[in-house]
Simulated scan of single mutants.
Amino acid sequence: MKSYLAASKTNAKGKSIQQKIVIIESDDWGAIRTPSSEAVNAFQKKGLEIANSIYKVDALESQDDLELLFEVLSKHKGADGLPAKLTANAIMGNPDFDKIRASNFTEFHYEKFTETFKKYPNHAHNLNLWLQGKSEGVFQPQFHGREHLNYKRWLHVLQQKNEAALFCFDWNATYSGKADYSFMEAYDWDTKDDIPEQIKVIEDGFKIFKSTFNETSKTFIAPCYNWDPLIEPVLKEQGVTWLQGIQTQLIPTGTFDEYIPLKHSFGETNALGLQYNVRNCIFEPSMNQNRDWVNSCLAQVSSAFHWNKPAVICAHRINFVGYIDTKNRDKGLKDLDALLKAIVKKWPDVQFISTDQLDSVLN
């Protein structure tokens, strides 16, 4: 009931649609987190706060992870005969640790995510699997950023010789060592002078996206849901028409974890003509193993349909990766399978689309 009431507050405003549409938005594909179970053990032995951090199980998705996820999605068809589909919000680059170390932490260097795939033991064919999933209609990449990293803050801490950050760096991880502090907020800023550099990074990231997928991304989701409206013109220039997010946009203030909240509703249009897609359903089994995510998410889907809104399910990559811990992936896929089965059974007229297809629903 709590899930239904919370979702109702989100769904009461905004545009309405008549179809029963389900969109699964999944962030962080292609981004590194913790590189191995050995790294997790090293972080624990060092006394870092890994037990309460997503870094404990989150890692670059493996070929096994992708194949098993696609298998689950392909099983469940909407009324139009098309399978369940993941909007795979993707990161285009990861830190090049060797080059950064060679600069004595004074310069940021990155490598394309496809190069990162080649450095991991069960990942070399990941791009082929991404493209296969795209052609089969179960995996639709969209732009999440060039890096999932505020590299200026990260470099600053490394230059200050922070022991925990340096220790994690030596394991090829950007973990801060603290459960309540991260460097993941790519479009947060310390001063507004950071924004022009962020714009250049975004432009560079879109170049990689276009060259990889031979198309632009029609949607964008900011890492950690925080971004300044001043970056939105470049998103429009790159062909973005929809901004993904939760109900509240977090506008930077110059201080970590302090933001100006700005509420949005589904289909709301800003001065640039960009529309907002609001996540109104949460499916995150990795965040709490004891919660009944299937039934809580079903209640939120029901609320979305009651208010004539698409059911936009937030389900991060972490729920479907087992490279560090296969139990994490197995639990996430089992719950996803049960959720999709229940959705199709309860609403046989449902259709699954990716976020970039929303224009076809509203227009």
Results as ranks from 00 to 15, higher is better:
Ile17Trp: 06
Trp242Gln: 07
Leu243Tyr: 02
Lys9Cys: 06
Thr355Leu: 12
Ser135Arg: 15
Ala311Phe: 01
Glu147Gln: 13
Glu111Cys: 08
Val312Ser: 00
Asp359Cys: 05
Leu48Phe: 15
Thr174Tyr: 10
Asn94Ser: 10
Asn104Gly: 13
Lys9Asp: 15
Lys331Gly: 00
Glu197Ile: 05
Asp58Val: 03
Phe209Arg: 06
Ile100Thr: 11
Leu243Arg: 02
Thr10Asp: 12
Gly93Leu: 11
Ile208Tyr: 15
Phe352Lys: 08
Lys331Trp: 00
Lys45Arg: 12
Glu232Thr: 13
Ile318Trp: 01
Gln159Tyr: 07
Ala6Thr: 12
Ile313Leu: 05
Ala299Leu: 15
Ala304Asp: 04
Thr34Cys: 12
Phe266Asp: 02
Pro196Gln: 09
Val72Asp: 04
Asp65Phe: 11
Tyr187Phe: 15
Lys13Val: 04
Gly137Asn: 11
Leu48Pro: 02
Ile208Val: 15
Glu38Ser: 14
Val240Met: 04
Pro196Asp: 06
Gly14Gln: 00
Tyr4Arg: 13
Pro223Ser: 06
Leu73Phe: 12
Thr253Glu: 07
Lys77Pro: 03
Asn288Met: 02
Asp188Pro: 02
Pro35Cys: 06
Asp356Tyr: 10
Asp337Ala: 09
Ile54Asp: 13
Lys309Thr: 00
Asp96Phe: 01
Ala164Glu: 14
Met92Val: 08
Arg279Cys: 02
Ile50Asn: 07
Ser182Asp: 14
Asn328Asp: 06
Trp293Arg: 00
Asn295Lys: 12
Glu67Arg: 14
Ala7Thr: 11
Ala164Ser: 15
Ser3Cys: 03
